[in-house]
Nucleic acid binder design. Structure first.
Length: 632
DNA sequence: AGGAATGGATATACCGGCTA
DNA sequence: TAGCCGGTATATCCATTCCT
């Protein structure tokens, strides 16, 4: 398997400009339209360029190569720049670090949730950048510690799980499930009022043990970098979001949720199962594994939807990103479409950023299209990981719109007026609303300047945010309907959405607006049967939900249930204690009996010996003194 | 728990119309 | 009328949710 450097035919110490040149050279030779080219080869080359052109992803990749070469032994293995980075590269790196440190410092200290969650095909995140740029950061050192502790932690937890019997495990499971159904405040009340100190600690151990002792469990993190969820950073983030949502005093001052104070860490570790008002210190520090608060937090605490609304996808870390997504279309080449007109081939580079589609002009020269692709790749990288943009302070807190705008301005400067003008980029937003228009798309008119589209983009984004706050879950109108949103509310959103959409077209011309209105109405009408079906489903589900809630009302309240479980737990523990004492007593008794048996045996043996001696003595007619004199 | 369904995101092909 | 661009349709991917 060739390395990415080999795929690009680039030196491991190549600068960005070198990489661009190498990519262009290779792309032109391996494109399917060229002799001996193929889509696979082109995709490999593009994937390599996409990754290596990103400094953070490149550093990460270099590190991976270095680790691999260390594991295999240094001989005969191609070592990338990270292993033996020459002075020139090292100096460059230092300069980059120095330049970006001022920019990234604020985002690093505020945690960079947003960036950390950005899904990037090249496996890049701002968190990675900051950790790579700043080797002494706390998060990176914590991450590096996690795997080393994992094994011993697993063994310990496995032993701990063996110590519980089936019934105790069942009770712990039920309490955990019960607590998960409650809000944070209710949970805290019940935990502090009903659960004993011993039960809380057992619950904490149980949660950690069940997580780490079953690595194949679906709940466990399958990411090899973080074998268990003992990452304090993640825990903090989850807790912070949860506390904000529940209206409890926030753990962090910033929206990103990761501050650097240790109190926060402790609070987050304790809040899941232990009340902070408890006057006895819980021994969760030291050797005790870090508790995973997520297990007992409300699932809704994880406010991923907010990020999704910004056009960012959530990196759950559970799936390996495909380094080479399949190409689409007849050209079979990702990001460069091809069309034959009048016997000539036209190429056109395109790129998507969230729901923003960027397209370059079409051209007959593949080399020009590759140049365009290089520019668009830079735009995408900078928009998704805008930490390296000058003046992008607190960029983690910015929305995808603001970051794209920054990246766009930067691209204009970097590419130079000539190259940028040659791109003739056009921008449009692609929007889908399956519930209303089925599989068809709605899209804004193409703009020659991103600035023209920004206000519209913001409006759609705000609308989407409102939809999430209304409880749709942010995954779309249909899911919104099937969950918490009423059909009436849904319709209201659709009207608003349509209004923005038509206004966008109306800004071009009234004729366009009318044309789009007609088109949308046709699509909406065509999709009526589908909506009818969904409404029926929604009614059925609503009825089912209602029945469930009625059943729940008949059940004992959660506090009562928890109390009963806690009593059962205490009984079990008491019985277990009694049994262990009885067993201990039995053990003592057995040892005494054994000693007695041994003593009796010794006595019997001595008696038999005496009898034997006596018989010998009397048989030979000897006296006792004579016998002793013979030494017997 | 795991497969199926869903729907947003992404990417590309195709076509019609404008313009030099 | 060739060259190019904007609008549209659609294929595919993938995360999430639903259903059994």
């Amino acid at each position: 398997m060739p390395t990415l450097y080999e795929a690009l035919c680039a030196d491991s110490e190549a600068s960005l400009a070198d990489l661009k040149a190498c990519f262009k050279r290779r792309a032109l030779s391996v494109h399917p339209d060229k002799q001996g080219g193929s889509k696979e080869a082109f995709q490999l080359v593009y994937a390599a360029f996409e990754r290596l052109s990103d400094p953070a992803a490149r550093a990460k990749y270099d590190q991976t190569l270095q680790d691999r070469s260390t594991a295999l032994g240094s001989s005969g293995v191609h070592l990338p720049s990270a292993t033996r980075r020459p002075k020139r590269r090292k100096r460059q790196q230092q300069q980059e670090n120095h330049k970006s440190s001022r920019v990234t410092r604020s985002s690093t200290s505020s945690g960079g949730i947003g960036n950390g969650n950005i899904s990037n095909k090249s496996n890049t995140s701002a968190t990675d950048i900051s950790s790579n740029n700043n080797q002494t950061s706390n998060s990176s050192s914590r991450h590096s510690q996690v795997p080393s502790n994992t094994q011993s932690l697993r063994e310990k937890n496995s032993l701990q799980m063996q110590a519980w019997n089936k019934e105790e495990i069942r009770i712990l499971c039920r309490i955990q499930r019960l607590l998960k159904q409650l809000t944070r405040t209710e949970r805290q009340q019940i935990v502090s009022a009903v659960l004993s100190q011993e039960l809380r600690v057992a619950l904490a151990d149980w949660v950690t043990a069940s997580r780490s002792a079953q690595p194949g469990d679906s709940g466990a993190n399958k990411n090899p970098d973080h074998p268990i969820r003992s990452d304090v950073t993640v825990s903090k983030r989850l807790c912070t979001r949860g506390s904000t949502e529940d209206g409890v005093a926030s753990c962090s001052s910033g929206s990103s949720g990761i501050s650097d104070d240790e109190d926060l860490e402790q609070e987050c570790e304790l809040f899941a199962v232990c009340d902070s008002t408890c006057d006895v210190d819980l021994d969760l520090g030291g050797d005790t594994p870090v508790l995973d608060p997520m297990v007992l937090c409300d699932d809704a605490c994880v406010d991923d939807q907010q990020f999704k609304a910004e056009g960012r996808s959530i990196d759950h870390g559970s799936k390996e990103q495909d380094p080479m997504p399949a190409s689409r279309g007849a050209s079979e080449v990702k990001n460069i479409s091809c069309q034959q007109i009048g016997g000539r081939l036209y190429y056109r580079a395109s790129m998507s950023l969230g729901n923003l589609n960027v397209r370059a002009r079409s051209c007959t020269d593949l080399a020009v299209a590759v140049d365009h692709l290089i520019l668009l790749t830079a735009l995408k990288r900078q928009a998704l990981c805008a930490d390296d943009l000058p003046g992008a302070s607190s960029v983690a807190a910015k929305t995808i719109v603001e970051r794209t705008q920054l990246a766009y301005e930067q691209l204009k400067k970097d590419a130079g007026p000539g190259a940028f003008a040659d791109l003739v980029a056009t921008f449009s937003l692609h929007l889908k609303r399956k519930y209303w228009i089925g599989g068809s798309s709605m899209y804004t008119p193409r703009c020659k300047h991103l600035d023209e589209l920004i206000p519209t983009w913001r409006r759609f984004l705000d609308l989407q945010r409102g939809l999430i706050q209304d409880g749709s879950g942010g995954t779309g109108y249909l899911n919104g309907l099937s969950r918490a949103m009423s059909p009436a509310k849904l319709e209201e959103h659709w009207k608003h959405f349509k209004q923005i959409y038509l206004e966008t077209w109306g800004a071009v011309s009234e004729r366009d607006r009318q044309r789009q209105l007609d088109r949308v109405e046709v699509m909406v009408a065509a999709n009526a049967p589908y909506r009818e079906k969904m409404l029926q489903n929604w009614n059925l589900k609503s009825m089912r939900r209602e029945e469930r809630s009625q059943r729940r009302l008949k059940r004992a309240p959660p506090a009562e249930q928890a109390k009963l479980l806690a009593i059962r737990w205490a009984d079990l523990r008491a019985n277990r204690l009694l049994r262990s004492r009885a067993a201990a007593a039995r053990g003592l008794d057995q040892r005494r009996r054994q000693r007695l048996r041994e003593a009796q045996l010794a006595k019997r043996r001595a008696k038999a010996e005496r009898r034997e001696r006596w018989q010998r003595m009397t048989g030979q007619g000897l006296s006792m003194e004579q016998l002793w004199a013979r030494g017997e």
